[in-house]
């Protein structure tokens, strides 16, 4: 039992770290209040449920309606994966590539209507777009099965049930680590510094001839591609997709909570923020009924968790707006030199 908790924590840590890293680039570095973060995760689900499943149906020549068809297609592929693990890994890689491409495109389009807007209108528009796509995906069963849900391939069909959680957590952690390295690299290039400069003052960036709109488009394209990878992993882990799962609370609000808790603009701080949140979340998930009966709460514990996390967010904003580990100033080589000089 307690062992499962650890694998759950690791898994969720990896998933949320990927999402939060991408949000941290968008919000923490570039200052884009992406209140539509959930959309990118949903894009990952669309890549798996909407595209991969259909490709599989084509491959196995399954006709008929999408929801039942994908059930047959996934069970067909699962049988293959069970004897050929390499196919499972291939499917994972294929899904990630699909999702990244789709994420790049969606992210770039997503920001287009609002690329010139001020922060508040920008945030509102992103939230509204994300919410509208979420509604469509929920009520239109033809995209990813909507509220009814569809099954997705089990890329670990060759692993026995008791180890599946662990192996999956391992895969997610490896990918999260790669994403972390990617961002550390990316944000230490001139591109990363321009992003921060844009957050501080758009006019200086403009004065240096950088096109704000282009920067925002690039940022959101990359951010959404990475967010979509998390969506892929989540969809493949749960072996089915229910569109209702990609809510604003779970995939926008909580990532913001983690980024702000850890310290925006600081990828290592964010890791701490994610860990704190995930530990609480997993423990609440597992022990919610124990808590409910122990405290004699007359309602579903999920409501209580909403209240708690809402209050936690306010407390962070009041008392620790720069997070547990605040952002460090950027050290460009000339600055490092200066510091060395001062120290001597």
């Amino acid at each position: 039992m307690s062992f499962d908790i650890i694998s759950m924590i690791l898994l969720w840590f990896g998933l949320y770290y990927i999402v939060s890293l991408s949000l941290n680039m968008e919000f923490g570095y570039a200052g884009i209040p992406n209140f539509g973060k959930a959309l990118s995760v949903l894009v990952g689900a669309i890549a798996v449920g909407g595209i991969l499943d259909r490709l599989l149906m084509l491959y196995f020549k399954i006709n008929g309606d999408f929801i039942t068809g994908s059930t047959y297609a996934t069970s067909a592929i699962n049988t293959i994966i069970a004897s050929h693990p390499i196919v499972g890994i291939g499917i994972l890689i294929l899904a990630i590539i699909l999702a990244s491409i789709l994420g790049l495109i969606v992210g770039a389009i997503f920001i287009l209507p609002s690329a010139k807007l001020k922060e508040d209108y920008l945030g509102i528009t992103l939230l509204a777009i994300s919410e509208a796509v979420f509604l469509i995906c929920t009520y239109n069963l033809n995209i990813i099965g909507g509220y009814y849900g569809i099954s997705t391939p089990d890329i670990l069909a060759f692993v026995s049930g008791e180890y599946r959680g662990w192996v999956f957590a391992g895969i997610v952690l490896i990918i999260a680590f790669l994403v972390f390295l990617f961002f550390e690299r990316l944000l230490n290039t001139p591109f990363g510094r321009v992003l921060r400069a844009m957050r501080e003052n758009e006019n200086t960036v403009r004065a240096f001839g950088r096109n704000i709109m282009m920067l925002r488009i690039k940022t959101m394209a990359i951010g959404s591609a990475i967010g979509a990878i998390a969506g892929v992993l989540y969809s493949l882990y749960t072996v089915n997709i229910i569109a209702n799962a990609f809510t604003r609370v779970d995939w926008t609000f909580f990532p913001f909570l983690m980024v702000l808790l850890g310290g925006k603009g600081n990828n290592k701080g964010v890791a701490l923020g994610v860990l704190c949140y995930v530990v609480i979340k997993v423990l609440l998930d597992i022990y919610k009924y124990n808590i409910k009966y122990a405290l004699n709460i007359p309602f579903e514990p999920v409501w209580l968790s909403y209240m708690l996390f809402g209050v936690l967010m306010l407390l962070i904003l009041y008392y620790k707006p720069s997070g547990l580990i605040p952002e460090k100033p950027i050290l460009t080589p000339p600055m490092k030199k200066k510091i060395a000089e001062i120290k001597q």
Binding site: F27, G31, P33, F35, E119, D120, G123, I124, V249, F253, F256, L260, F299, E300, V302, W303, L304, S305, Y306, M307, L308, F309, G310, V311, M313, L314, L317, P321
Partner: peptide, 21 residues
Amino acid sequence: VEMLMIATLAIDLILLGVIGA
């Protein structure tokens, strides 16, 4: 204004929790 928006999102979540409960 971003922080204020996040704060209202938090208040919204609290209200959702209260209403649901």
